[in-house]
């Protein structure tokens, strides 16, 4: 096995690429303008492999691209019909598992979950809706937590931290009652700037900032005209065009 950092050769979708060993597969793909859909992953933060959206086939086995470091000789397929259907099914499960009512959500149009569903053109989920009973918590003066929309990706917990590295958010309760909470001992330190970062890092409308909303006109929202991931793929086209 090659040591971390040595140059290795891998094959993605039939094409050969050079990379350094030990780099996460998702980052290698992104650098090479290959879009692998993700929800729980954030660049630069330790991956969790929670949502399974980035599942790819590595030498015939399904693995999450965000937690898999590349190594010599890997043969990766990122977009087979089976993988496409698997990812679509995962998205559909997320939609039926919570109460995602897009018409009344402030995040609509800027929501990663919705944008992926648009990209996969989900017209209706194949699973029955579960309509779980969830609460909305507006206790914090700056943030509203809507547990109906939370997909438990842990992005807020993993990224929004104070200067000592303590998380502003945490999980509470267990099993199907699991939900995010704002850490009590830190809530006085939660300022507007941190609240905004938390809202931005949330892939759905589960965290919303109070006293603002619907700031962006409908036609200018993030995923209005271009699908999620096209920023990665469009670079690919321009690079090819330059050559």
């Amino acid at each position: 096995m090659s040591t971390n950092g040595s140059v290795i050769r891998i094959i993605i979708d039939g094409k050969e690429y050079l990379s350094r060993s030990g780099v996460y597969l998702i980052d290698v793909a992104r650098e090479n303008r290959i879009f692998i859909p993700t929800l729980c992953n954030i660049s630069g933060v330790k991956p969790r492999g929670a949502c399974r959206m980035c599942t790819v086939s590595v030498n015939g086995r399904y693995m999450t691209a965000c937690t898999t470091p590349v190594s010599e000789g890997m043969e990766i397929k990122t977009n087979t019909p089976d993988l496409h259907d698997l990812r679509k099914a995962i998205l559909e499960i997320m939609f039926v598992e919570g109460n995602h009512i897009c018409p009344v959500c402030e995040k609509s149009g800027n929501c990663d979950l919705q944008a992926l569903a648009y990209r996969f053109q989900i017209l209706v989920p194949r699973f029955p809706y579960s309509f779980p009973k969830r609460t909305i918590d507006a206790e914090n003066p700056l943030l509203v937590k809507d547990h109906n929309r939370c997909i438990l990706c842990k992005r807020c917990i993993r990224t929004i931290k104070d200067e000592q590295g303590r998380s502003f958010f945490a999980f509470r309760k267990r099993g199907h009652k699991l939900e995010i909470s704002i850490a009590h001992h830190l809530k006085d330190h939660l300022n507007k700037e941190i609240a905004q970062r938390a809202v931005d890092v949330c892939p759905t409308g589960a965290l919303l900032k109070k006293e603002s909303g619907y700031n962006i006109p409908i036609s200018e929202r993030k995923y209005e005209r271009t699908p999620i991931g096209s920023e990665i793929e469009s670079l690919k086209q321009s690079v090819i065009g330059d050559q």
Binding site: N99, I101, P103, V104, L123, Y129, F131, K133, R134
Partner: peptide, 18 residues
């Protein structure tokens, strides 16, 4: 044909489901 979010997933009326 189911036309619109309400027909497909209950939509705004389904907010009473809990």
């Amino acid at each position: 044909i189911s036309l619109g979010e309400c027909a497909i997933m209950g939509g705004v009326p389904a907010m009473r489901n809990g």
